[in-house]
Every structure is written in C-alpha cells, then in structure tokens.
Design a protein around this nucleic acid. Structure first.
Length: 215
DNA sequence: TGGATGATCAACT
DNA sequence: GTTGATCATCCAC
C-alpha cells in the first residue's frame, strides 16, 4: 500500500446484478475489486488478486459436485452475492463469493488479496504483532492465500451467508481510476482428488502481482 | 528452494 | 476411520 493509492480510493459497492453470472465469469470480474471488512468503524481493505471458480454440479472439485447439498454447502444454493465461508483442514477458513442464480450452486474462492488499508490491524489478527514488528516475509504472507486472508481480515464462521451487498463485509470497485493488468488463467490449487477437473483452467490471477499465492 | 509432516475438525464412508 | 478448495515448520540439498 502507498499513500497515493489510499488517497485515490473512491469505493462504490457492487450490486446484486454483478454476481448474477457463472463462477468463471464472476472470477475474472472480481479481480482488481476491493474486499472490505468494516468493523467498529475501522475498515480492512484488500484488493482481490487471485481467485478460483467452482462450477457446481459438473465440477468434481466443487463442494456442490453432483448436487451435493448439506448444511455446509447450503448457502451456495441460495441468492448470489452472499459469502460462503467454510472451515478447511480443521484449521483455517476460506471465503467464497456465491455466483449465479438461486438454485445453482457455484462460487468463487478468494485466494489472495493485496492489502490496501488496515495493514496494521491485519498484522495483529494474523500474527498477534504490530505491523512494524513483522519481517518482510511476514508482510507478503499477510494475505497471499485463502486461509491467510481470512485470518488477516478476521473472517470466520459467523460470516457464512453474509450478504456482500450489505454493510459488514462487502465488495467494491474503485471509481477513481481504471487499473490496467493482464489476467493469467491456470489450474486450480489443492484439488488432486478431482480427476480431470484438476486440470481445468479455472484459477485466475493478476499477472506480476506479488501477493498471488502460487505463480 | 523444495519436499515431508503435523495441526485439527466437519463431512462423508 | 479417512479425507480435505491450507499453512507453518523442519530438514535436506
């Protein structure tokens, strides 16, 4: 983050219609947008730099593959533009954005953020230390992975189902300038069990951004 | 710089 | 009882 960027922030919340598309399209559209967690008047903001699409019934990597519908996956079947937050490996939370119309269980996993505002607070949630106490490697590691960014932004189970067009956790675009970047399309991460689906090019990231989790 | 491993729990078999 | 949309740590090279 630098002060020039901060002074240029002019955030405009995305409305429901933005999310009414399939997860691959939504993935690409989410790159470069700003995820905001507003808590106690303080804002934690990260730019979305890496995402993955999970395409539902036909996608062997998706929790909703073959129409699987459980308490955990239920929000993916609901209204688009809500958060799907789940516990992974008993240790970390992952944040997804529910895509497509109600009844179609697709989602976009947010895999990495570039910290834009509130890094001092993120450092405390993530490492229990002040930002100035962190090593250089720890600063890059604040938000460069799906579990890491949830810890840094204090996103936990209570945010499952949260309406991302609301006031607590939401996604914005920056109206002040149009950013230029290339999008890299490649394989998703951590889905070796998913047979042919493991090769689908449904991970997208902003080329050359240092906060991308895996190049 | 990269491979192996353990943490820890909900979903599923 | 096994596995997983992860991560930090340890150890070899």
């Amino acid at each position: 983050m630098n002060s020039d960027l901060k002074s240029q922030l002019d955030l405009s919340r995305l409305d429901r219609s933005f999310y009414s598309k399939n997860a691959v399209k939504l993935s690409k559209d989410l790159l470069g947008k700003y995820l905001v967690h507003s808590m106690d008047g303080k804002e934690l903001i990260g730019k979305i730099v890496e995402v993955e699409a999970y395409m539902g019934v036909g996608d062997k990597a998706a929790h909703s593959y073959n129409g699987r519908r459980t308490a955990r996956t239920e929000v993916m079947y609901g209204e688009e533009g809500h958060a799907y937050v789940y516990l992974i490996y008993g240790m970390y939370y992952c944040l997804n954005v529910v895509a497509a119309k109600e009844g179609i269980a697709q989602a976009v996993l947010i895999r990495a953020l570039e910290p834009i505002k509130g890094s001092e607070i993120m450092a405390v949630y993530r490492y229990g230390k002040a930002l100035g106490e962190l090593k250089k490697s720890q600063i890059i590691n604040l938000t460069n992975g799906p579990g890491k960014l949830c810890k840094a932004l204090n996103i936990e189970k209570e945010y499952n189902g949260e309406d991302l067009t609301g006031n607590r956790l939401f996604i914005c675009e920056n109206r002040s300038f149009k950013e230029e970047y290339d999008i890299v399309e490649t394989k998703r991460i951590g889905i070796d069990y998913a047979q042919e689906a493991k090769y689908f090019p449904w991970r997208f990231y902003i080329k050359d951004n240092p906060y991308v989790s895996v190049k």
